[in-house]
């Protein structure tokens, strides 16, 4: 990669369509995705349930105490949507993946709204590891890869704590060897 002549980027010439013409967004050349811990589903479910309880309580309060009937309908609707999305939670967690490639970190998430991000290691400004209360009970941690661009948004949730620390050290090491100025 280093000795590659720079001006001749692949893709400058019109390329023939080699990618499979599936409707889904996918990276055909990408390798094996690393998945986050299945236990992370629990974290998501607990968070969703808490959100659900708050919505129900607020709607109930508006309905019963202040006599606002519309609040009950809105609350019920939000609760229904949340419950349906709860059913997809395991799949959504399975969709989160990342891989450390030669020069960049590749990240994906989402099933309905898919998102792929690729960040060259040299662009790393810092790596953040956070642990929420429930994640800590399950021995999980979230890792965030921060670049100078606010929109990069590479956050890998639900890593086993040891994995998160190892991944952080690995990323810092990779970034050090490929440091790019801002």
């Amino acid at each position: 990669m280093a000795e590659q002549p720079v001006p001749d980027y692949p893709g400058t010439e019109p390329t023939e369509s080699v990618a499979p013409v599936g409707a889904r967004l996918d990276l055909p050349e990408a390798g094996e995705w690393k998945r986050v811990s299945p236990k992370y589903v629990m974290v998501e479910i607990v968070g969703t349930v808490i959100f659900l309880l708050i919505v129900c309580a607020a709607a109930g309060a508006l309905w019963l105490l202040l006599d606002q009937v519309w609040a009950a309908w809105v609350g019920a609707l939000i609760a229904l949507i949340t419950l349906v999305s709860l059913a997809f939670e395991p799949r959504r967690v399975r969709s989160i993946g990342y891989q450390l490639r030669a020069d960049d970190l590749l990240f994906r998430r989402g099933i309905m709204y898919q998102r792929f991000v690729s960040v060259p290691y040299g662009r790393m400004q810092l790596v953040d590891i956070t642990r929420g209360p429930i994640a800590r009970l399950l021995g999980l941690a979230d890792l965030k890869f921060v670049t100078a661009a606010a929109s990069s948004g590479v956050a890998i949730p639900g890593l086993a704590e040891a994995d998160a620390d190892a991944l952080r050290d690995r990323l810092v090491e990779l970034a050090e060897s490929r440091r790019a100025g801002l």
Binding site: M1, A2, Q4, V6, Y9, P10, G11, T15, S17, V18, A19, P20, V21, G22, A23, R24, L25, D26, L27, P28, E29, D103, D104, F116, S118, P120, G122, R123, R178, A180
Partner: peptide, 19 residues
């Protein structure tokens, strides 16, 4: 869709080389 995947790969590779 296919072009998007290609863009991701080529632009990332070019960005690494350029940096």
């Amino acid at each position: 869709v296919g072009e998007a995947a290609r863009l991701l790969e080529t632009v990332t590779a070019a960005a690494v080389a350029s940096a």
